[in-house]
Design a binder for these strands. Sequence first.
DNA 1: AAATTGTAAATTGGATCCAATTTTGTTGAC
DNA 2: GTCAACAAAATTGGATCCAATTTACAATTT
Lengths: 240, 240
Amino acid sequence: MNAGICTLWITPGIPQMASKLKLKSVDIGNRASAGSIVYEALRKAIIDGDLEDGAPLRQDDIAGQFNTSRIPVREALSKLEQEGLVKNRRYRGAVVAGISLREASEIFDFRILMEGEVIGASVPNMTSASLSKARGYCEEFRRTEDSKNWSKLNRKFHYSLYRDSGLKYHLDMIDNALDRTERYVHAQLSISQGVAKAHDEHLAILEACENGNAEMASRLTREHISSVRDELLEHLGGRR
Amino acid sequence: MNAGICTLWITPGIPQMASKLKLKSVDIGNRASAGSIVYEALRKAIIDGDLEDGAPLRQDDIAGQFNTSRIPVREALSKLEQEGLVKNRRYRGAVVAGISLREASEIFDFRILMEGEVIGASVPNMTSASLSKARGYCEEFRRTEDSKNWSKLNRKFHYSLYRDSGLKYHLDMIDNALDRTERYVHAQLSISQGVAKAHDEHLAILEACENGNAEMASRLTREHISSVRDELLEHLGGRR
DNA sequence: AAATTGTAAATTGGATCCAATTTTGTTGAC
DNA sequence: GTCAACAAAATTGGATCCAATTTACAATTT
């Protein structure tokens, strides 16, 4: 479980020399705290669905797995609670926060609003570099067989089309919404023809972006997310 | 500082009897933790502008003021960071996170999108109770002289029109946006004729709601927030 | 056997202590 | 006087300890 924790630190303190020596700067100075390492690991595990909804998150267990005390674990759990990924009850511990279909549906509505707006603001600023990057993710999405990667690449594709908007606050909000719905997107893509349909819609969105048609990109994005939501509700038996 | 903390606890564990005995239940069981008390106090101080942008928040100082150790303070600061109200740099401490006009402007755009949508969803569900409550806040807003209360009542008025939407996720997002912009709203209302103009617009929004005109309420809300933003940018010398 | 009470174990919240890092102040060289 | 090098103080991050609370479980009563 200690994978990724580097034990050999370079001693800091001579930043002036660094530029002269042309060393690949590793951005020492803001190394991850124990808390943020635990946070990232738990966040990934929850989003990927490796931890089931309602699963208890014992501070001692987690602290043991990361070879730390419970203090950083509590910090991580607190952050995750703020993001809505875990629920914390005083003296009763934390559990993975599952979201109902009702809640998921609302977050999809939020995404429709947000992402439709942001991609529209993004289109005028898109560079050929960001467009080819997006096309890369799009292709990768189509080719990949691993269901675990579908939702990740889907997310990367969409998000890469939003960055040029420069709307940092909106992007943060979208990030959180994607965090909370990723499990559901994964489920939706795993069902029949989800990936093929999504890929077609991705191509259409890409084309609109390449043509500089912001209004079209916005509309197609809204319809795309909307259709993901509807199929999800249909297949998982929830009614709006 | 211990005001509000009761030292005489009724022993829990007999919920069946409670109903028979008709005791006034005081909802023991989710008392506030030290961390959340510190969190609420700091949040209020930052939003109200009692703490200036960039002001350092020393863990020891705060812990001393609340007669606790630094642990709950760290928890509070961590939550506030997630909300964007403070910035935390490893080993360097936390400071109040000021937002630039550029950032504030973006958050206003976010609010225009969000609140326009949410009030539209709310109108069909509004009851006469919630409408009269909103009208109460609206009146209070007009009558009050204290500039500190303007932004609070303004916020209460608007928010009371959103609750009936039942869109919990959207409401959370709006809450955060309001937290971050409240200082700016306060500044805008303090300048010439800000309150009178706002009140007129509030009345128009209320009327649209009472008439069940969701589209109108949505449009007026968007225009209202938009005008607050524009006046703010104009008076504080920022350009879009 | 079912319900209730009491007790021990498990778990979390908070205080205190130590280590890591930054900041501040001082000294010395030029 | 200015700058670097160094030491001391201040501050934060993390570990360990204790207290508060909940949970699990055995004992008791009916």
